[in-house]
Amino acid sequence: MSETSPKPRPLAGYNFGYLDEATKRMIRRALLKAVCIPGHQVPFGAREMPLPYGWGTGGIQVTSAVLGPSDVLKVIDQGADDTTNAVSIRRFFSRVAGVATTESTAEASIIQTRHRIPETPLREGQILVYQVPMPEPLFKLEPRVAESTKLHALADYGLMQVKLYEDIARQGEVGTSYNHPVMVNHRYLMSPSPIPAFDNPKMHMNAGLQLFGAGREKRIYAVPPYTDVRSLDFEDHPFKPVRAPHACAICGSEESYLDEVITDDAGGRMHVCSDTDYCASRPPLEDAP
């Protein structure tokens, strides 16, 4: 199913998009500020949402604030359109906002995502909303919030570089295969939310607007279209996006990011595209499972 579903009738008794208008305005103000200062974390008054923290409360608040009646919404969870988190958030918005939903990246105007950037490049006018569990890239290195705020203010990011140094000294390479920190617009250190390092280069000079919402931590940040986003590295140990050295078992792609799927109890496994829409849009292999 890749075509867009018809617009459903919204549930009675809810404001459009679940949140009340005053809350949406507050979130939009935070979003505007975030877009003006790319990569800077803006505090906002996150509301209780009808799903648990860690399931995307920040993401759905941002989506709710930017959603309009003519928008077409796509929701992915680890690249897939058909997992619990994606299905329930998509159904949530079709009920409380009555917007059309889709599984096609190209047809969507707003894409809410958990931990992936779609393989299909975004075009101008599209919005990518990330669900962020921990917005502070320094939190494992500097336990004091006041101090890490100061480090951001002074652009004092030697500490993060020390962590990469330690990785190389111990393992010979940088050990972060996901959530690899990035510098946005040559100024702010930013957590890309736990997307695989493979996806980091897609953030750089992206045509779409990228918005990040962290519900529990009550922070919003953004990367406007065509913004410089550079993954941290060393000159002699350049950043390397990690990808499993296999082809997709279904579509045969050798470019897309792959999930490893255990198929039986005897050690059988296969690699398939994590982006289900991308995989379905390609002709399947003859011997595809």
Partner: peptide, 20 residues
């Protein structure tokens, strides 16, 4: 953090980005 990382921290804070 390792001894080398401790010595290197000030270099990295000052902008050195060459591991070697």
């Amino acid at each position: 953090v390792s001894a080398g990382g401790n010595v290197g921290e000030r270099l990295m804070a000052a902008g050195d980005r060459h591991y070697g």
